[in-house]
Measured scan of single mutants.
Amino acid sequence: QWKVGDKCSAIWSEDGCIYPATIASIDFKRETCVVVYTGYGNREEQNLSDLLSPICE
């Protein structure tokens, strides 16, 4: 189960590419979260089910 502060990978809606991110907040009722893309600072809402394991850098 994901928690705030977890590192993950998420698909950015603008280009469909996968980027490393950190979970900033979680809404368990809606099963969504807000991620912050590492190195970019962009925030975006994602479905918890769409999150991927962190990418090894």
Rank of each mutant, 00 (worst) to 15 (best):
D15W: 10
P54I: 10
Y37W: 06
L48H: 03
C56P: 15
C8S: 00
E57L: 12
N42W: 15
T22Y: 11
L48Y: 04
I55Q: 12
I23W: 04
V4T: 07
S49W: 10
S25C: 07
V4E: 13
V34W: 11
I26R: 01
Y37V: 00
E57V: 13
V36P: 01
R30S: 10
V34K: 01
P20S: 11
L48V: 04
R30D: 07
G41Q: 06
W12V: 05
Y40G: 03
I11Y: 08
G41P: 02
I23D: 02
C56R: 11
Y37C: 03
S9I: 08
K7W: 11
C17N: 15
V36G: 00
S53T: 06
L51F: 03
C56I: 15
A24H: 13
C8N: 00
T32C: 04
S13Y: 08
C17M: 14
C8E: 00
R43A: 12
K3F: 13
S9E: 09
S49D: 06
D50Q: 05
Y40A: 04
C8Q: 00
L51V: 01
A10Q: 04
Q1E: 12
T38K: 05
F28L: 11
D6C: 12
D27Q: 03
S9T: 08
P20F: 12
R43S: 14
I55H: 08
I18P: 06
E45I: 11
G16C: 07
C17H: 15
Y19N: 02
G16D: 04
V35H: 01
K7Y: 11
R30V: 08
A10C: 05
F28V: 09
A24I: 15
C56H: 14
Y40N: 15
R30Q: 08
P54C: 11
N42F: 15
V4W: 06
R43P: 05
N42T: 15
I18F: 11
F28H: 14
C17S: 03
E14C: 11
G39H: 13
T32D: 02
I11P: 01
L52E: 02
K3S: 09
Q46P: 05
D15S: 04
A10G: 00
E14D: 05
Q46N: 04
V36D: 00
C33H: 00
A21T: 05
Q1C: 15
R43D: 05
I18H: 01
D27G: 02
E57Q: 11
E45V: 12
I55G: 12
L51C: 05
K29A: 13
I26N: 05
W2T: 13
A10H: 02
F28D: 08
Y40S: 15
N47W: 13
S49P: 04
C56M: 14
S49R: 13
I11L: 06
I55Y: 12
E31M: 15
G5W: 09
A21K: 03
N42Q: 10
D27L: 10
P20W: 12
S49K: 14
Y37N: 00
G16K: 04
T32V: 10
T22G: 03
W2N: 14
A21V: 09
